Amino acid sequence: MSEVRNWFDQGGSAYARFRPEYPEALAARLAELAPDRALAVDVGCGNGQLTRLLAGHFRSVSGFDPSQDQIDHAQPQANVSYRCAPAEDLPLLSRSASLITAAQAAHWFDLPRFYSEVRRVAVPGALLALVSYGVLSLEPGLDERFQRFYWQEIGPYWPAERKLVDSGYATLDFPFEEIPGPAIDLQLQWDFDQLLGYIATWSAVRSAREAGQSQLLLDFAEDLYALWGDPAQRRAVQWPINMRVARL
């Protein structure tokens, strides 16, 4: 079981390798809802997971993140510009953005100030989409053990903001005329190491280790290893993509 014992040692360095990518259909549907294809703005863009998908649907895309390290790891594209900037102070002209997205990021924003910037930079009829992916689910036989780990065992080690993500931002202040967002799931086929590599990127895992709860993590990993079978076998992993969408 040494491979399980060493699993959590990957730590945060595996973030870019294991974080799931948004499906192309998400960018396509948001583009269809936008009033035109001139400029899309991705706020809290990280290393550009959603930003680069939007690039295939808009003439120009701007990605902003407060972390220079994240910006430095974004992949360059001809019609995409990345800049280090906070969500609450965007270096954009007023009435310039046709689509404004924030993917897995809005729960960290100063929302009143961010919404003020949204109103400033949006063209009439622009689309605002706060995107998050919810708690993953696994195949029958694996999912029950995972859900117990997520909600009961690792749950106390998540930051308070995580509850906003788990609810699909349902309780987030959203003072706009809301419209239904597209119904899309994120679906992947992962082997055992890929799933555990992803879980190892969680801030809750880091917090549990710092609190001396490594055995809790290892017990879960070994239980899942026993249920998985051949660790090289790929199994279905699915996340619901949740959105709060408004026409401005």
Results as ranks from 00 to 15, higher is better:
residue 21 E to K: 15
residue 141 G to A: 03
residue 30 L to T: 08
residue 128 L to K: 01
residue 177 E to F: 03
residue 170 A to H: 11
residue 110 D to A: 13
residue 143 D to L: 08
residue 122 A to H: 01
residue 107 H to N: 10
residue 160 A to K: 15
residue 228 W to Q: 05
residue 190 W to M: 15
residue 173 D to I: 07
residue 115 Y to Q: 08
residue 53 L to N: 01
residue 75 Q to C: 11
residue 80 V to T: 07
residue 91 P to L: 03
residue 49 Q to E: 14
residue 134 G to V: 02
residue 150 Y to A: 03
residue 45 C to D: 03
residue 237 V to D: 07
residue 19 R to H: 09
residue 75 Q to D: 14
residue 107 H to E: 08
residue 143 D to Y: 10
residue 182 P to L: 02
residue 51 T to P: 00
residue 141 G to C: 08
residue 94 S to F: 05
residue 127 L to F: 01
residue 169 Y to Q: 11
residue 166 D to E: 13
residue 26 L to I: 04
residue 9 D to Y: 01
residue 45 C to V: 00
residue 221 A to I: 00
residue 143 D to M: 09
residue 216 L to T: 15
residue 67 S to N: 10
residue 150 Y to T: 01
residue 126 A to S: 14
residue 161 E to L: 13
residue 39 L to K: 07
residue 114 F to W: 09
residue 3 E to S: 14
residue 45 C to T: 06
residue 46 G to W: 07
residue 188 L to D: 12
residue 175 P to V: 12
residue 50 L to F: 14
residue 101 T to N: 05
residue 228 W to V: 05
residue 212 G to V: 00
residue 1 M to D: 12
residue 120 R to M: 13
residue 168 G to P: 06
residue 199 I to K: 11
residue 116 S to L: 11
residue 211 A to S: 14
residue 116 S to M: 04
residue 96 S to M: 09
residue 236 A to T: 15
residue 231 P to Y: 05
residue 206 R to W: 09
residue 129 A to S: 14
residue 210 E to D: 12
residue 197 G to N: 09
residue 103 A to V: 09
residue 235 R to S: 02
residue 109 F to Y: 07
residue 121 V to N: 04
residue 140 P to R: 10
residue 110 D to Y: 09
residue 101 T to H: 04
residue 129 A to M: 06
residue 131 V to I: 15
residue 25 A to I: 07
residue 32 E to D: 13
residue 121 V to D: 06
residue 245 V to E: 03
residue 12 G to W: 06
residue 112 P to R: 01
residue 100 I to H: 02
residue 64 F to Q: 08
residue 106 A to F: 07
residue 205 V to S: 14
residue 26 L to H: 06
